[in-house]
Design a protein around this nucleic acid. Structure first.
Lengths: 330, 330
DNA sequence: CTGAAAGCGCTAACAC
DNA sequence: GTGTTAGCGCTTTCAG
């Protein structure tokens, strides 16, 4: 390659890497020779020598035995956004779906495969999160959705999001608003949403109820069971703020089965901005995090380019669809 | 590292890579030293020296300006399955979302970043597919959804899938079944579905109509417009086989708006097995490809481990939900 | 079974 | 502005 262009090996390297000290003429000759020979720099060698990887590893925690269709679309969105953000920053994305212990791997940085790591996915895979726990507080690791509370995390602005949701319900005249969601210790994001819900209700002189939640394997089923429990409890309600869209879909189904009209009798708002909410029955009004910013924050945090910790809150917005009626006048 | 264990560098390499010629005792000593020092093999150096990459590059073609939530979940499913398959085969997945020309990159193999490539994503990004066209027929490249017809492809068993869908509609007593979908040259999969629809209709002595399709930016909108066009055409229909779920959601909405009951008046079946079909109104009966096998086929093809070409058809199954009424007796 | 030596293909100091 | 030289951290002959 070098001889073909009539220059030294290092000149080839400089020319191809855009080193400004190379003459346009020389660079042209090198380019030409490279094209003629189909030459490309070997990324492995370049990275070995330069000590960099220009790669960010993204680990998606999944549940054992689940196939691709069962992964929460929210995590796919996060994955896509993170890949896009990495690319924008000139980094590649090495992605690893991890569900079974035999595939657990947290050593992408030590093995010099990546400069930073992003962890995301379902919080309901204890073995996986236990395995990854030790690295969650590292400065070159960013995570979304971990069940632990002893480390920084990137997350939606749950507080602002819950406020938007509850105030939207209030604007439509709802006063007896219930919260459906899992507020277990390991679900920090849902706890935050619940707490904000309580706060907003109080501010308006209204009574906030306890969180309603029934366990099940999948979110939609949790939603169905929780909605049924809420109805059975004979507690009056005319609005539901649901901690996540996947559960809200189940809630919507049960309400419909029981003959409770949405948004006529009860207003429902979810959280996550899932695209499938556009086709649910009725279409689901929801709080959507800015996925693009989420990806950027995760990538930046993983690469140690994040300034303050408190900046790790992704802004949210309300996506108006059809599960809450129009705001009442005056 | 080597001195710490009191052995030669090459012994360390052999011990850690599981070379059977190393004594258990020696291996234990090496392991111990490695743990003590936090030593890990540098993947860049190992791959450079060995000449292998053990990596498969996955390129997801997206539309410019689209954010993560607008990517068809079908492609996310394919992506997830391919990553899982790669992992199962001992390969890593380097994933690259490509939408804008400045990020186009098809040289993952030449730059020794991957041993094989998988391309998938929306077929409606001409610049991207034109760019990738030259590599689509290579033996180390597998693709799903390309708009070109001059190369092998991995795809769902469209023929069998269309048959299952149409026969299911027939089983519920529908006789005037319409096909909604884009059968343009560049949409090979939809053409195949349409052709099978025609064939099955003929077999049953029924008349197959022309494909119904109206252009729009997004699939759901195409579905809405197409359904409207079908209704306006005053052509009688009591069943619709829709070429993909994303369009079917739009079809369902328009039918509902026009007061046409599904599955009461009209039965609807989609294709793709999107998870969100479980929450649509009504839940969408659909033909689902086996995503796990799809991922395996894509990965195998990319690594040149696929036997015959005709084996690149992924089996499909019917997912019964609520958009077709129960089969009629006898 | 283990050691010695070579070298994968680059990039980065350092010359000039 | 370009050449010379060294060496990134491994794996792989080849010896013994």
């Amino acid at each position: 390659m070098a001889e073909r262009a009539g220059v030294n090996q290092s000149t080839v390297s400089r020319a191809l890497s855009g080193d400004p000290s190379i003459t346009d003429q020389t660079r042209a000759r090198v380019q030409e020779a490279a094209n003629a020979l189909g030459y490309r720099v070997d990324a492995r060698a370049a990275r070995l020598r330069s000590g960099k990887t220009r790669t960010i590893a993204i680990i998606v925690v999944a549940r054992p035995g689940m196939d691709a269709t069962e992964i929460n679309p929210f995590h796919y969105n996060l994955l896509g956004s993170t890949c896009a953000a990495a690319s924008e920053m000139g980094y590649q994305a090495l992605v690893s779906f991890q569900s079974e212990p035999e595939h657990f791997d947290r050593h992408f940085i030590e093995t010099r495969q990546a400069d930073g790591m992003v962890l995301l996915g379902t919080s309901t895979n204890d073995a996986a999160w236990d395995y990854h726990h030790p690295i969650l507080s590292r400065s070159d690791v960013a995570s979304w959705g971990s069940p632990f509370t002893d480390h920084d995390r990137v997350d939606a602005d749950n507080c602002a999001g819950a406020r938007i949701a509850v105030e939207r319900l209030l604007a439509s005249g709802h006063r007896q608003i219930a919260f459906i969601g899992d507020t277990a210790e390991t679900q920090k994001q849902f706890r935050e949403r619940y707490e904000s819900y309580v706060e907003v209700m109080r501010e308006h002189g209204l009574e906030a109820g306890p969180p309603v939640w029934k366990p099940a394997a999948m979110r939609a089923e949790q939603g169905r069971k929780s909605a049924a429990a809420l109805i059975t409890s004979r507690r009056d309600f005319d609005g539901i703020f649901c901690s996540c869209d996947a559960m809200a879909f189940g809630v919507l189904e049960t309400l419909q089965e029981r003959g409770i009209a949405v948004p006529g009798d009860v207003g429902v708002i979810g959280f996550d901005g899932l695209g499938s909410g556009a086709h649910s029955n009725p279409p689901l009004t929801t709080v959507e995090p800015d996925f693009r910013k989420a990806g950027v924050m995760l990538a930046r945090k993983a690469l140690g380019k994040q300034k303050a910790d408190d900046a790790c809150r992704v802004p949210v917005r309300l996506v108006e669809r059809g599960s809450v009626r129009k705001p009442t006048e005056g």
